[in-house]
Design a protein around this nucleic acid. Structure first.
Lengths: 222, 222
DNA sequence: CGGATACTTGAAATAATTCAAAGAATGTGG
DNA sequence: CCACATTCTTTGAATTATTTCAAGTATCCG
């Protein structure tokens, strides 16, 4: 967790300042909201264990999933700009988060340049992430989107010490579809096609990637 | 420019610190790049006059426009995370920017809490902007996307003291299409349809919105 | 003025959606 | 712990939105 979440090269005093900062833990059970759109923003949250989705609700009821967050990732950065949360964060399995009070974070980061820089990079990385998604939604076909999504998940699991090619999806086909800008039926069909082509085997939420290079070809070609 | 770019409530000493920070001006002529993907990141840029697009280049040549920036808006925030720019920023008309050296900005913002807060909000606003776009690309139809795009432009022009309902597009149909995830022909056809329905009149790049409420209906219904 | 670039429009092709129905998985309360 | 209700997933067939290809017109810029 430290490695993923915190800048390296802090001294003992600085580490202590951080430990005081991040003292509140919260447990969210599957299906519950960590926060909802409209809630007052007071803290960022770091996922310690578990899995979340964030989603925007359009007035007409349409939902757009804007991200999936796992261990070591930060939630709530979009709320800094308005002092209130602009989306819902829903736990997709029983999860633990630590709460990072934002006022305190700003104070401490003003005193510790390394931390300040780290925080700015984290915000910026979220911008980059979103822009990668824009590319995906704006210029890829359904097949490419799903392939890119699976490769991204695979990489993130791997970074966290889990198997690269075997994992269980925490989200439904509808969540994936919303995230990737396609209907759940299209997600399902595309999984079946990948399965038929021997690129992966899929059984409900259980995924085994058999030919990762097959996925890579799909994302980069044509 | 001050109103758009800077936090209110700074004292004289703080305003001075900022003036020193933002001393370099640059002029970019139409078609030129302010920076390109891969360039080392050293400064953010604030648009003083003119109009930019930012675009991501996929390895296979596909281009994704990720934003259009006008007076008072900031460019380069995505580069903080990697120390190098991840997209190109191209001037769509002759433009002026001021350069904001990033190291200095971090230093000054650590000393002036109001400025620090303002900067964090600005980064966060960029995240929110991108997420709005995700919603647009992920769950709207071509007609809704273009309507939402025009309303957004209209609002931004209005905020800057220009006419809300009359403007000249700085970008091509292809740029708009890339931004909205559709082909240039679809953009053109959709403009023609809006024109035929009396929602707006369009003549090449000159737009006159006749029934803004018509656009609003399109974005929010169905 | 002339060449290049940008825009419009039509017709045919296609990717993705919608509707529908059946089968699998999941969770809950008795 | 099992039975039942619910939610989730798969798959087919018909429909639709958008793209592709193509050709002609307008506009811009040197």
């Amino acid at each position: 967790m430290r490695e993923l979440c915190l800048p390296v090269g802090l001294n003992t005093r600085e580490i202590e300042a951080l430990d005081i900062l991040i003292n509140t833990r919260r447990r969210i059970s599957k299906g519950e909201a960590l926060y909802r759109s409209g809630d007052r923003f007071q803290a960022l949250f770091a996922v310690r264990t578990g899995f979340f989705k964030t989603c925007l609700l359009h007035e007409d009821g349409r939902e757009q999933v804007t991200g999936f967050q796992m261990m070591g990732e930060l939630l709530g950065m979009d709320a800094i700009s308005t002092d209130s949360h602009g989306c819902d964060a829903i736990a997709l399995e029983d999860s633990d988060v630590c709460e990072i009070p934002f006022d305190a974070l700003e104070q401490v980061s003003a005193e510790i340049p390394t931390l300040q820089r780290h925080f700015h990079r984290t915000l910026s990385r979220e911008i980059v992430r979103d822009q990668g998604l824009l590319m995906l939604l704006g210029s890829m076909r359904a097949e490419e989107r799903l392939a890119a999504f699976l490769l991204n998940l695979s990489e993130r699991f791997h970074d966290r010490g889990f198997a690269k090619d075997d994992f269980i999806l925490r989200m439904t086909r509808e969540d994936i579809g919303s995230y990737l800008g396609m209907k759940l039926e299209t997600v399902s069909r595309t999984f079946s096609r990948f399965n038929a082509e021997g690129i992966l085997s899929v059984q409900g939420k259980t995924i085994h990637i058999q030919r990762p290079e097959g996925l890579k070809e799909i994302t980069s070609c044509r």
